[in-house]
C-alpha cells in the first residue's frame, strides 16, 4: 500500500472511526487518540488483511476492539484510584453530549448514552453501531463475528434492558 493509498483510506474512514470510538468511550480527546491508534494498527497490519471480510468491517472491528480495550483499562484504573476524588469528575463525564444530535434531542440522548453505559459490552457495541452508525444487523454480525440472528437477539436484549434502565430512571425522578 502506497502512502497516497493510505492517506485516501484515512480520509475516507476517519469520520466513521472517530464517531464509533466517540460513541463508545464518550470523550473527545480519548476518541481522537483511539481513532489514530486504529489507523496506526491498520497501517501495520495491512499486509495481514485477508479479504475474508470487507475492509470497512475490518476497520470497524479494530475500532470497536480498541475502544473496548480502552474502557477496560479505564475501569481498572478507576478501581485503583480513590473514588471520592473522582466523584465530581465522574458526575460530569456521565453526561455525554454527542455533537451530531439535534438540539431538541440533546438531553434525551445524554440520558440514553448514560443508560447504554450500563449494558454489557456486546449489547453496548451492537446497539451503538446500530443506532449511531446506522449499520444493519448483518453488518454488525460480521463486525462482531456473530450470526445475523444472534445479532438481532443481542440488539433486542439491549433494547429491553435499556427500557428497564430508563423506566427505573423515570420512577426515581
Amino acid at each position: 500500500m502506497t502512502e497516497a493509498d493510505f492517506r485516501s483510506l484515512v480520509r475516507d474512514n476517519k469520520d466513521k472511526v472517530f464517531n464509533t470510538c466517540l460513541s463508545l468511550v464518550k470523550n473527545f480527546e480519548d476518541a481522537e487518540d483511539l481513532a489514530q491508534e486504529v489507523f496506526i494498527e491498520i497501517y501495520r497490519k495491512m499486509e495481514q488483511f485477508e479479504n475474508r471480510s470487507s475492509l470497512s468491517t475490518w476497520i470497524y472491528r479494530i475500532a470497536v476492539n480498541k475502544s473496548l480495550e480502552h474502557l477496560r483499562k479505564q475501569k481498572a484504573l478507576k478501581r485503583n484510584v480513590d473514588y471520592a476524588s473522582l466523584d465530581m469528575e465522574m458526575k460530569d463525564s456521565n453526561m455525554f453530549y454527542h455533537p451530531g444530535v439535534t438540539l431538541e434531542n440533546k438531553e434525551k440522548s445524554a440520558i440514553l448514552f448514560r443508560a447504554i453505559d450500563q449494558l454489557p459490552s456486546s449489547q453496548k457495541v451492537a446497539f451503538t453501531l446500530h443506532k449511531v452508525e446506522g449499520l444493519s444487523h448483518e453488518e454488525i454480525g460480521k463486525i462482531l463475528e456473530k450470526s445475523k440472528s444472534s445479532t438481532e437477539s443481542l440488539i433486542h436484549r439491549a433494547k429491553m434492558n435499556l427500557r428497564e434502565i430508563l423506566k427505573g430512571y423515570y420512577e426515581k425522578a
Binding site: 464517531n19 434531542n105 440514553l112 435499556l162
Partner: peptide
C-alpha cells in the same frame, strides 16, 4: 429517549 439518536450526524475529528 430510545429514538433520540435518530437522524444523528457523524461527529468529525
Amino acid at each position: 429517549i430510545m429514538n433520540s439518536l435518530q437522524n444523528l450526524e457523524r461527529a468529525k475529528p
